[in-house]
């Protein structure tokens, strides 16, 4: 155990090539999927939270269900759709980083949208009542509502980001955890632990935890800024 930890630190310090590749694939996947989820999820969440139309409640319930979807189920669906028997087999996307990104977008967008929606839902009546009471135009009052959401956008994004980087079931299924190609931090930890070589697993674990720590520090800074 002691030597495994030592070796892990050595791996990080020496910039081991495979370790760097894993980090690179992870960064591409996580940043892409979380940014796409942000671009879709924020407008969707604000729309769901601020609008009024029949079927809105149903959409919110569906979205909340998707928020809690087990990643392996998402992986399974994409696996079936893109595997040799699925309708999208011709795309040859299975076991690529692209399909991992797409599957993660499906997984994360509901989280971004859902947290935005519940935040907007919480303030929409007060904002509307106050703006309308002043006689402020609808458009301006919508911008005021958006302005209230700025910090929530950051924390929703970070939530999506950390879900993406920590998630293993879905990316393992659709990515296949192929070394030098689709192996990300979480899947690599599984793989190397199964092979009995703990050091690279520990090295990745240390990096993952550091990123989680960083995200939480960022979140708390944002929360502090928001209340100032």
């Amino acid at each position: 155990m002691h030597t495994a930890l030592e070796k892990a630190i050595e791996l990080i310090a020496s910039g081991d090539a495979e370790l760097l590749n894993i980090l690179n694939v992870t960064a591409i996947m996580t940043l892409s999927s979380s940014v796409i989820a942000l671009l879709i999820g924020v407008p969707l969440g604000v729309f769901l939270g601020a609008s009024q139309f029949p079927g809105r409640k149903a959409l919110i319930v569906i979205n909340r269900t998707l928020m809690g979807m087990p990643p392996v189920v998402c992986g399974l669906i994409f696996y079936i759709l893109f595997s040799g028997v699925g309708p999208f087999r011709a795309t040859h996307l299975l076991f690529t980083v692209r399909i991992m990104i797409i599957a993660q977008v499906v997984l994360i967008t509901p989280i971004v949208a859902g947290t935005m929606e519940s935040y907007v839902e919480g303030i929409r009546f007060s904002v509307r009542e106050t703006a309308k009471g002043l006689g402020i135009s609808r458009i301006k009052s919508f911008f005021l509502l958006c302005n209230e959401c700025v910090y929530q956008v950051f924390s929703s994004y970070l939530l999506g980001f950390s879900r993406s980087i920590a998630e293993v079931g879905c990316v393992a299924m659709v990515g296949g955890a192929i070394s030098w190609k689709t192996n990300v931090m979480t899947t690599a930890i599984m793989e190397y632990t199964n092979k009995g070589s703990f050091s690279i697993g520990i090295a990745l674990g240390i990096i993952l935890l550091s990123i989680a720590l960083l995200i939480n520090i960022l979140l708390s800074i944002i929360q502090r800024r928001a209340s100032r």
Binding site: E129, N147, E148
Partner: peptide, 30 residues
């Protein structure tokens, strides 16, 4: 009266340009 809520009929009972201060005031983030 302020036109924030609609009565059952859906028609606002006064046709005046109204200013309204809610029971709990909202401070915008600025």
């Amino acid at each position: 009266l302020a036109g924030i809520e609609k009565p059952d009929s859906g028609i606002r009972p006064v046709e005046l340009n109204a200013g309204y201060m809610p029971q709990r005031s909202f401070a915008f983030r600025m």
